[in-house]
Amino acid sequence: MTALTRDDYPLSINRPDLLHTPTGKPITALTMDAVVSGELSAEDLRISSETLLLQAEIADASGRPQLAGNFRRAAEMTAIPDAEVLAMYNALRPRASTGEALAELADRLETTYSAPVCAALVREAAEVYGRRDLLARPTGDDD
C-alpha cells in the first residue's frame, strides 16, 4: 500500500475502507441500529493502533514530524490498559521514580507492550532526570 497523503484526509469521509475498530469491525458498522441492538461495546468506540499509524502517515505528509511521532507513541499505547497508562504517567512525574524503576518501565514497555518508541522516551527521561536531580531517592525520603 502506498503511503497516505493529505488528500486522503479526512479518513472518515475519504477512506472509511481503511478504518477499523480495535475489535475488527469496519467503521461503517458503528450505526445506531448496532448501538440499539447491543452489538457495540465501548471497546468498539476506541481508536486502533493501525488507524493511529495512518494518521501518522498523514501528519508526516503534512510536514509535522513531531505530531507523527506522538501518533506512533499513541499507537503503541493502545495496547496498554487505562489504569496502567495513568500509572506510567505518574511514574514519569518529577522525583516519582528511581533510575532503576524507570529502566524497568522502559523494559516493560518494550517487552510486554512492544512499545519501543515509548520506551525510548522513558529512557531519555531517565537520563535527563538523573542529570537534573529529578529521580526519587532509593531510600524513600520523607519530605
Binding site: I47, R93, L121, A125, V128, L134
Partner: peptide, 15 residues
C-alpha cells in the same frame, strides 16, 4: 516534566 507531559499527550491520542 516535559517527558511526563509528552507521555500524557500520547495517552490522549491513544484513546
Amino acid at each position: 516534566t516535559p517527558w511526563s507531559k509528552a507521555f500524557l499527550a500520547s495517552a490522549y491520542a491513544s484513546r
